[in-house]
């Protein structure tokens, strides 16, 4: 069995947004849509610290779909448009089935990882970018990180892993004890987002 997931060394994330941009380009995300966002654990504005000068702290948390092992969204989708791939654990989205009820968006505790195309997808440069293999974006359905399923199909990693200049993003199979991600969570302290929700996310943040 395989269980794909991410390890992100948030201790060393500098919020450059390369991963967010890589995702946006690879998946030809429409204007205003971001599947991967970098959250600032600090002050009220993005990229500002908590505390008072000069006693300050800041931490950056890239957040996309957590591809939970116990996903709240999969349970509630009335038509099964959101479903979990049994082989890999990836939580997937079938745009063609989605009726746009947004129940999954209410059920997911990680608000913001799911995006809804509130209008006909607009593309600033008027032509597609990114991969030729991604499913077409549709008006008024829910979308989210697909773990670059189209790249997994070619034996490649998700698009957000390699471009990280800080080299803090890792992806792999948690069911394989010798994989890099398994080793990282064995060797280093980590945290997960909203663990008390019991969704068992497949994203681990090294701290």
């Amino acid at each position: 069995m395989t269980h794909y997931g991410f390890v992100i060394d948030s201790k060393s994330c500098i919020s450059c947004h390369s991963c967010a941009v890589a995702c946006k380009v690879e998946n030809n995300l429409p204007d205003s849509i971001w599947w991967n966002r970098i959250l600032t654990d600090g002050g009220p504005n993005m990229d500002t610290p908590a505390g008072t000068y000069p006693n300050l702290t800041i931490r950056n948390i890239p957040m996309g779909c957590q591809h939970c092992e116990n996903p709240a969204c999969v349970k509630v989708c009335p038509v099964g448009a959101t479903y979990q791939d049994p082989e890999t654990g990836v939580v997937r989205q079938d745009y063609d089935k989605c009726i746009g009820c947004r129940m999954c968006m209410s059920a997911c505790p990680y608000t913001g990882v799911r995006s809804f195309n509130w209008e006909e997808p607009q593309y600033a440069i008027g032509q597609p970018m990114g991969s030729l293999d991604i499913p077409q974006h549709q008006k008024q359905v829910v979308e989210k990180c697909t773990m670059c399923w189209h790249r997994l199909a070619q034996g490649e990693k998700p698009a957000c892993i390699e471009p990280c200049p800080a080299r803090i993003r890792f992806w792999g199979d948690f069911d394989d004890p010798s994989s890099e991600v398994s080793q990282l969570i064995r060797e280093r302290e980590y945290m997960q987002l909203l663990p008390e929700q019991g969704t068992r996310p497949s994203v681990y943040y090294l701290v």
Binding site: C16, H17, S18, V21, A22, V25, E26, A159, E162, P163
Partner: peptide
């Protein structure tokens, strides 16, 4: 041009790209 991705340096410690290099298509 559909996208730009990271290409390797001959020394892997210098492999690099950033949010701007990834935005070239736009």
């Amino acid at each position: 041009v559909m996208k730009t991705t990271r290409a390797p340096y001959n020394e892997s410690c210098y492999d690099r790209i950033c949010q701007r290099g990834l935005s070239h298509v736009q």
